[in-house]
């Protein structure tokens, strides 16, 4: 099979699915009433894809994201990353999987306000046992890549929203994760900054980084390779993809 990370074209049937989701279900209990948040979601994501998940509030898109990110456990179904069924992992394995496979980008950036840009990137690598020098090197490299090479010593409060989000993206990339999960990454920035962020994500995707973006913003979604529309905990439409359904089952 093709394992070249630089293909990037969506729908390339020969690409290896880096993420496979099978019949994922999640039911929350509201008192004694079960509330289904996800109702049998299945799809594949190939390496290097830039995918957006859209849908109204309560459609289950954030729940889906937290299942993929192993922040929460499904009621039923499976998530495979690199052919490993992460939904079957033990609780004490979850941190390692999060470190190695997932990079998070949040709406509100969630940088630590007491740390500099450099340290905010560095902190993601602390739990992996990377040497201090290597971490510094890597953080500088990533910050330079996102265009903040001259801002490494700045605290979040000294950076604009767009700059903060770029630090957050650098942080998400720090451990070279299989997938970047971005939860409303442009939700807290203005339209001009939004384009900078989206361009950055597109650039990363072209270099082979798999990215899943959850967004309300159709302007953002339209710029991605593929859009999955969620409604009532299920996939309402999946554009730009052929054959996932057939392939998956």
């Amino acid at each position: 099979m093709n394992n070249n990370g630089n293909i990037g074209e969506n729908g390339n049937i020969e690409s290896v699915p880096i993420l496979r989701i099978r019949n994922l279900k999640k039911t929350y209990m509201q008192g004694k009433i079960p509330v289904p948040a996800l109702d049998g979601v299945s799809f594949d994501v190939n390496k290097g894809e830039l995918l957006s998940i859209v849908g109204p509030s309560g459609s289950g898109k954030s729940t889906l994201l937290s299942m993929i990110g192993l922040l929460d456990r499904p009621t039923d179904g499976s998530v495979f990353i690199d052919d490993v069924e992460i939904t079957k992992s033990k609780e004490n394995e979850a941190p390692r999987i999060r470190r190695e496979k997932i990079g998070f980008v949040f709406q509100h950036f969630n940088l630590l306000s007491t740390l500099t840009a450099m340290e905010n990137v560095d902190i993601a690598m602390r739990f992996t046992g990377t040497s201090k020098n290597r971490r510094k090197e890597r953080a500088l490299e990533l910050l330079t890549m996102v265009g903040l090479g001259d801002r490494v010593k700045h605290k979040p409060s000294e950076l604009s929203g767009g700059q903060q989000q770029r630090v957050a993206i650098a942080r998400a990339l720090a451990n070279s994760p299989a997938i970047i999960l971005a939860d409303e990454p442009t939700g807290a920035v203005d339209t001009k900054t939004r384009e900078v962020i989206v361009d950055l994500l597109k650039g990363l995707s072209e270099k082979g980084q798999t990215i899943i973006v959850v967004t309300h913003d159709m302007d953002v979604a339209r710029q991605t390779d593929r859009i999955i529309m969620m409604r009532d905990g299920a996939i309402a439409s999946d554009t730009g993809v052929t054959g996932n359904e057939e392939k998956g089952f």
Binding site: R99, I123, F127, N175
Partner: peptide, 16 residues
């Protein structure tokens, strides 16, 4: 709360 949540999302273990 947020900081610890973030550290966990970044892969911090309980022991950290």
């Amino acid at each position: 709360t947020k900081e610890f949540g973030l550290l966990k999302a970044l892969g911090a273990e309980r022991k950290n």
